[in-house]
């Protein structure tokens, strides 16, 4: 992917981010930057707070403490109107695709254009057909309902929706979860292609190391609410970090302990 054009001013900057749910401290003093035009992949075990991190950045959750800056602007505590304007820079591919069941595919993809930006339906539909084409779907798919689509097609439609408004930042939440390896690779290729064509900054969270290596310029590992390692994707196999080694090799033994209660 393209390199950073302005290393001094990261697109997204997170500082001392903290978030708890009751007594469960999910994020604890988390620091991370994502430079302009780079693809950052956050890896980590289940329940370590990857989704919470992304939801805090998007404003879907309010952090207990810390700072999140996008393009240098503090986003924690933004008012609704300002938040909506900020979100117009962003596209999101959700883990379960999160397509609206009550709308046909083309209206799903056009939703942000029509409802969020007030674009006319005809103009929006033209863009939708182009975006569906970009993810390898024909115009006939636009008239189907989400319930009529396979898992892979739903991901493609969700990707088309995420890129419909040519966002500056795209978030991918477990983009390949639940897909067979071939379809997962197809989605990875589409993500790479779309992000490159848009010149967007990408933040992905995943368990899938094949996907992480393929779509990430940089990889960060999250454990117990903190980033325990981050660096170029090409260097992850020689990170020298025991958490990363255990995770990428999928070993049960190591510093990461799964909490399993005896039956």
């Amino acid at each position: 992917m393209s390199g950073s054009s302005d290393k001094a001013a990261p697109k997204i900057s997170v500082r001392r981010l903290g978030k708890s749910f009751g007594r469960n401290r999910v994020l604890e003093g988390l620091d991370i930057d994502c430079p302009v035009g780079e693809s950052l992949v956050v890896i980590g075990g289940s329940g370590v707070g990857k989704s919470v991190l992304v939801k805090c950045i998007l404003g879907l959750m309010r952090p207990d403490e810390g700072s999140i800056r996008i393009d240098g602007v503090e986003t924690v505590g933004l008012r609704r109107k300002a938040r909506e304007e900020l979100l117009q820079k962003c596209g999101v591919l959700f883990q379960g695709s999160a397509l609206f069941d009550s709308l046909p595919v083309w209206e799903n993809v056009a939703f942000g254009l029509i409802q969020g930006r007030g674009m006319g339906r005809e103009a929006a539909k033209e863009i939708v057909l182009a975006k569906l084409g970009a993810v390898g779907l024909g115009p006939e798919v636009g008239e189907l309902r989400p319930a009529e689509l396979s898992g892979g097609m739903r991901k493609r439609v969700a990707l088309a929706r995420a890129i419909a408004a040519d966002p500056e930042i795209i978030f991918f939440d477990e983009p390949t979860t639940g897909l067979d390896p071939i379809m997962a690779d197809v989605i990875n290729d589409l993500i790479l292609k779309c992000v490159r064509e848009l010149g967007a900054t990408a933040v992905s969270i995943t368990h899938d190391m094949v996907s992480a290596r393929k779509i990430g310029d940089r990889i960060a590992m999250l454990h117990k609410g903190r980033i325990v390692w981050h660096g170029p994707a090409a260097e992850i196999d020689r990170s020298g970090n025991q958490f990363v080694d255990q995770f990428i090799n999928g070993r049960a033994e190591g510093p990461i302990h799964m909490e399993i209660r005896a039956l």
Binding site: A98, F100, F111, G112
Partner: peptide, 16 residues
Amino acid sequence: MRVTEQIDALTTLSTD
């Protein structure tokens, strides 16, 4: 819509 993140999707599409 809530449990399948569709409401979150609405928010990210700049729709209250």
